[in-house]
Design a protein around this nucleic acid. Structure first.
Length: 290
DNA sequence: ATCCAGGACAAGT
DNA sequence: ACTTGTCATGGA
């Protein structure tokens, strides 16, 4: 086994971007933080990346990759400075930003993003990570000469996977959802790339018709995989945070909170959600690898 | 052992 | 539309 030639590059990024905060903000499940950076897989390549001020130092193995593609994937191509200046008009977000500034919205591969968040339903983060990693390891393709990296399995591979394999990925009752989604994509009945080009409301309605996809999961896919930054996923943490910090502790339905956020934050609602989520989770998310 | 986890879904108000 | 009970599984 001879080591593969690893290509490397420097990627300039938006001012204020914070790689580590972005990767442990809960929007992805397969990146691993290392003492001086992070490792992940995207578009068939195993990538090792660390941040050096206003640039990323990147090494990858597998298919060559345009620096701009990595920057877009990591959300490092967005005008974070302007976005956070706008969000800072809000008193709650302004106080949170001291600890959360630099969190960007990633643009992950839509298929992995969809499956990951279907798995996330009524689940805990360590087990979500376990399941997604298990799917890659059992059904994905090994990236040549990378230390230990697999692509996320294609819809075709997932559609053909047996019950025993999926059971080994501890998907639980979500396994039928994942298989149904895989068949839809493999059969050409669902084109996620096309969904990304639709108007927001149409894209959201389409996702809501998919098995295992409710409002929260749909909003996560829209936000983290399809580039719709106005999406505002309301999970239990965001719901509690909004009720406590904006509604004086009075309870609101998730739908009411989503409508409120759309009205208050508009096209930046997704960014607001990330800061509220990070603020609500607090110290729970500050550990390396957690 | 018992409870919880970035909800979805179906059934009952 | 909002509320309730159920769902598989590993970890705390």
């Amino acid at each position: 086994v001879r080591p593969a030639a690893a290509a490397s590059a420097h990627v300039s990024i938006a001012h204020g971007y914070h790689l580590e905060r972005t990767l442990r903000s809960g929007q992805c499940f397969r990146w691993v933080l290392t003492p001086d950076g992070a490792q992940g897989v995207l578009y068939g390549a195993a990538v090792s990346v660390r941040q050096d001020r206003a640039r990323l130092v990147v090494t990858w193995q597998g298919p060559s990759m345009q620096p701009a593609r990595l920057a877009r994937y990591l959300g490092a191509d967005q005008p974070l400075r302007d976005i956070q200046r706008a969000l800072g008009q809000d008193r709650v977000l302004r106080s949170l930003l001291a600890r959360t500034s630099g969190i960007a919205i990633m643009r992950q591969e839509p298929w992995e993003c969809l499956v990951s968040f279907v798995i996330s339903a009524f689940n805990n983060i360590p087990k979500i990570q376990m399941s997604v990693q298990a799917l890659a390891r059992r059904l994905g393709e090994r990236i040549p000469s990378a230390a230990a990296a697999w692509t996320f399995p294609s819809p075709e591979r997932l559609a053909r996977a047996g019950d025993a394999v999926l059971r080994g990925c501890v998907l639980g009752y979500r396994a039928p959802y994942v298989r149904a989604l895989a068949r839809l994509v493999a059969d050409g009945e669902l084109d996620l790339k096309a969904v990304a080009t639709m108007p927001f409301d149409d894209a959201r309605r389409l996702l809501l018709d998919l098995p295992g996809v409710g409002e929260k999961v749909a909003d996560c896919v829209l936000l983290f995989g399809l580039g719709f930054h106005q999406a505002f996923p309301v999970d239990v943490w965001v719901q509690r945070a909004v009720e406590q910090w904006y509604f004086n502790g009075r309870s609101r339905t998730p739908r009411a909170i989503r409508v409120w956020a759309h009205d208050r934050f508009g096209p930046l609602a997704g960014y607001a959600q990330q800061h509220l989520f990070a603020g609500a989770r607090g110290r729970l998310m500050t550990g390396v690898g957690a």
